[in-house]
Design a protein around this nucleic acid. Structure first.
Lengths: 242, 242
DNA sequence: TCGCTGAAGTGAACACCGTTAACAGTTAAC
DNA sequence: GTTAACTGTTAACGGTGTTCACTTCAGCGA
């Protein structure tokens, strides 16, 4: 049965068990935060003993890492679906759509967002060119925004700071990333970076409750900030007051 | 001896021990991150049994919380000293000075910064009007920036978005905080919030290594961003290119 | 100065954690 | 059909935060 693929019955069961483990880990993550997803708790969730999980994951950190990678992929797919949902939409609108989508996902999945973007252990290891699946997934996620901004610039180059305004040191660093940004000039790379920096900081602060002291509902503030950023990218924006 | 205060010899020794515990906790925090500051490790550091610490702190979480409060106070004092260091300095320059000071402190004390500003457990408790020492210390910290911006505005009101630009919903929320911001109009409160949001996000991203993929040394980028923010606050800024 | 009180510190113990080792049963492969 | 690999078990080790019963001793009032 199913001789087309080389996978045996055991392989299928194994894949199913791995999926079950991931699902249980995620359930615990959602219910109790990162600290709640422990090896014994996951095992308990599917009626296994803790050491059994070592047949599927090398360690507890391994489990968390693949969970991180999966969540990045899920978030990326969600954003891509949002971007490609209406092929006729303006590129600028897509930038707003995806930014709002990231915020919505973060607010709807605070525990997952906290695992992905919460303080990731200040690791002072110098040569940390992580090629871990998690890192790769994170790059794929970041590329959604990078590609979008680059495409916006290609379609209608937005005005950007001059080299003199930014200073030689910063320009040198930005030039190094120019090819990564489809050959955009350093000033445009700077604005792209600003877009990402502000968006990221904004969402982190809201999700992590760092804005509660000032705003009861940060939605309107988020829209206004997005409007500002879009303006900097030369986009004609939707009215901030809804 | 020392009858002026009501403190007995035992009280003094107790206070000394508490200070010793805090110092050991901080040392472990700096050396090994948050996870390294455990009850047994702290006790070991000063030749004590782990249960002995319960004479001084109600729990492990208690220890961490007071450590957080202490660090907030230390950071706040550092920023205040920076602000009041040159009484003849321009208010705008102080804003840059304090912002840069926060970044310097964060880069110089990554472990402490991570403990203070790292993802603080998405706590969905509704009425979480925390009056814990840590929360109060955090407010005192935030007040440094708030007061500075408010003073800048009082001295030379900066142009700010109009009510129509921000929309009624956001304006309503900002008006609620108007008295907290020394009676500043909502548009000015909005700009103050922007200043804080961008600064915070920027520093967090740099310290937590979220900028490594784009910039080898985020210092120049930080200066450029600070320049932008200062421009929005109507300040004549130092040249970004040093 | 004596005696009491309460604080400080101890070791043993509990329940939990991640992890390893030795072992048993089932399944796939030759 | 035999063998090897895979999947699961229990027992155990060292680690954690925490509680409890117990000792010791400094400091205070009488």
């Amino acid at each position: 049965m199913d001789l087309t693929t080389g996978e045996t019955r055991r392989d299928r069961q194994r894949a199913a068990t791995v999926a079950e483990i991931k699902a249980a880990a995620r359930k615990l993550l959602v219910e109790g935060g990162v600290s709640a997803v422990g090896l014994r708790a996951v095992a308990r969730e599917l009626g296994l003993s803790a050491p059994a999980l070592y047949r599927y994951f090398g360690s507890h950190e391994d489990l968390i890492s693949t969970l991180v990678a999966d969540l990045y992929d899920e978030l990326t797919d969600f954003l891509i679906a949002l971007r490609d949902g209406d092929p006729a939409a303006e590129l600028g609108d897509k930038l707003f759509l995806v930014a709002g989508g990231l915020r919505d996902w973060a607010l709807g999945h605070p525990a997952e967002f906290g695992l992905l973007f919460g303080a990731p252990v200040p690791n002072p290891d110098a040569d940390d060119h992580d090629l871990t699946p998690g890192h790769q997934a994170a790059m794929r996620f970041g590329a959604v925004f990078k590609d979008l901004v680059a495409e916006v610039y290609r379609q209608r180059p937005f005005p950007h700071p001059s080299d003199e305004q930014l200073g030689p040191e910063l320009i040198a660093q930005l030039c190094q990333k120019s090819d990564f940004f489809d050959g955009m000039p350093p000033g445009a790379v700077y604005l792209s970076l600003t877009y990402w920096t502000r968006l990221y900081g904004l969402i982190c602060m809201e999700v992590f409750g760092q804005l509660h002291w000032a705003l009861t509902d940060a939605g309107a503030y988020f829209q206004a900030q997005l409007f500002e950023i879009g303006e900097a990218l030369g986009l004609d924006c939707p009215l901030p007051g809804q």
